[in-house]
């Protein structure tokens, strides 16, 4: 029995080693962020949607996110709103190499870009010049940032996977109206901290692109 277990471990190691190499993709997972939908439904200051896709190259997954986000906030002395679209592209590295259901525990990185507009109206008081209302807009702003990602994908039924992606976002850079300090970048979040934490809870549908002969043979050999 110990000999059998030893052989199995050897097989798993070989299969894992083969997945460590970059391979042709076997499928595309397309999904969406359920938290973004929940925020939109439950009348949060944030509303929007996000589409996610990834495809496997062995243990490496090319990941792409595209989304729309808007924020409407009543401030203590005014009102802020923004609206924009964003894209993130990057790579995830899967650490569960031999899982037959393609469950994933991954680390990765992303580069994000956003183009958006924002508007701010607020009451102000200036010494000697009195009080007033200031209206200012940042109509053609763009931003870029980096992300470290960490997450799970678990197969829940047939071609459906669910999981989460935690994001450590950093180094936001904004170009736009120099008289407007951007408050919130769609896809990034509030800019007052140089690092920001994001979380997606996602559902995916996997479309197979080709048969995984080598892996299927390996899985059969395990049974």
């Amino acid at each position: 029995m110990f000999l059998f277990l030893g052989l199995n471990a050897q097989d798993e190691k070989q299969a894992g080693d083969s997945l460590k190499r970059i391979q042709m993709p076997t499928g595309v997972r397309i999904g969406t962020d359920l938290i973004a939908i929940g925020k939109t439904i439950f009348d949060s200051p944030l509303s929007g949607w996000e589409l996610n896709a990834d495809t496997d190259f062995g243990r490496y997954y090319l990941a792409l996110d595209y989304g729309k986000s808007s924020r409407k906030d009543s401030l203590e002395n005014g009102y802020y709103e923004n609206d924009g679209r964003y894209i993130r592209v990057g790579v995830d590295i899967n650490f569960l190499l031999t899982d037959p259901d393609r469950n994933m525990f991954f680390l990765g990185f992303r580069y994000g870009r956003s183009s958006f507009s924002e508007q701010l109206t607020y009451d102000f008081t200036a010494d000697a010049f009195g009080s007033g209302v200031k209206n200012i807009a940042n109509p053609n702003a763009t931003a870029g940032w980096g992300e470290l990602t960490l997450g799970l994908r678990v197969k829940v039924w047939k071609a459906i996977w669910m999981g989460y992606t935690a994001r450590l976002k950093f180094l936001p850079g904004v170009t736009g109206n120099p008289e407007f300090e951007t408050f919130d970048i769609p896809g990034y979040g509030k800019t007052f901290k140089s690092t920001y934490y994001g979380f997606n809870y996602q559902i995916f549908y996997r479309i197979p692109l080709r048969k995984e002969k080598q892996k299927n043979d390996y899985l059969k050999s395990l049974k």
Binding site: L75, Y80, Y122, K134, P178
Partner: peptide
């Protein structure tokens, strides 16, 4: 130069 900044929802906005 002037820059309009939002500190937070509860603190509001100001000019820097």
């Amino acid at each position: 130069t002037r820059k309009s900044e939002v500190i937070s929802v509860t603190c509001g906005a100001y000019t820097n």
